[in-house]
Amino acid sequence: MSFIKKIAIVGSPNVGKSLLFNRLTGIYAVVSNYPGTTVDVTRGKAKIGEEEYEVIDTPGMYSLLPITEEERVARKILREEKPSVVIHIIDAKNLERMLPLTFQLIEAGLPVVLALNIIDEAEKIGLAIDLPLLEKELKIPVAGTVSTTGRGIDALKGRIKEYARSR
C-alpha cells in the first residue's frame, strides 16, 4: 500500500495527453499523432509544489459510457484508483464538442481540472476563449495550455496545487 496521491490525465485521443504527461513527469515516451494509439497506460512521477504525485496517462476516452476497450480501461482507472486530481485535457478548438465529457467527469464527483490544450492553434484560427467565465460556468479550475511548447503548464501546476490543497 502506498499513500502517494494520484493525478489522472484523461481526454480523447490526439489532444496532447501524452505530451502533457511528459511535461509533468519529464519522462519521454514516443508521442503519436494518431487517435487510439495509447493502448497501454503510462505512469510516472511528478513533483508539484512540495507534493509528489503519481501521474497516470489514461487511454483515450470520448465518454464515460465506454465503447472501446481503451475507454473501459480509462473509466476503470478513474473509478478504482481514486485520483486526487483528474486533468481533463481537451483541444481548445473543439471546446463545444469536448465539454460533454467534462460534464460527465464533474457529475461523477471527480476532482476535475480542465486544461484547454493547443490553445495557440485556437487563437490562430481566431477563437478567443474567456477562461474566467468558463471557470465560473463549470465551477472547476481551468487553464489554457500548449503541451508541445510548455506554455501554460506552470499555471496548470499552480491550479493543481491549489486544488489539491483545498480538497
Binding site: 469536448m98 465539454l99 460533454p100 481566431g126 477563437l127 476563449i129 474567456d130 460556468e137 463549470l138
Partner: peptide, 29 residues
C-alpha cells in the same frame, strides 16, 4: 443514451457560445 447525450451537447453548446468570441473567418484556410 441519445436523450442524455443530446442534453449534454446542448449545454455544451450554450457554454461554448458564451465563452468563445469568434473572429469572423472569411474563407477556408
Amino acid at each position: 443514451s441519445y436523450i442524455i447525450a443530446l442534453d449534454r451537447q446542448q449545454e455544451a453548446s450554450r457554454i461554448a457560445g458564451e465563452v468563445i468570441a469568434h473572429a469572423p473567418k472569411t474563407s477556408l484556410s
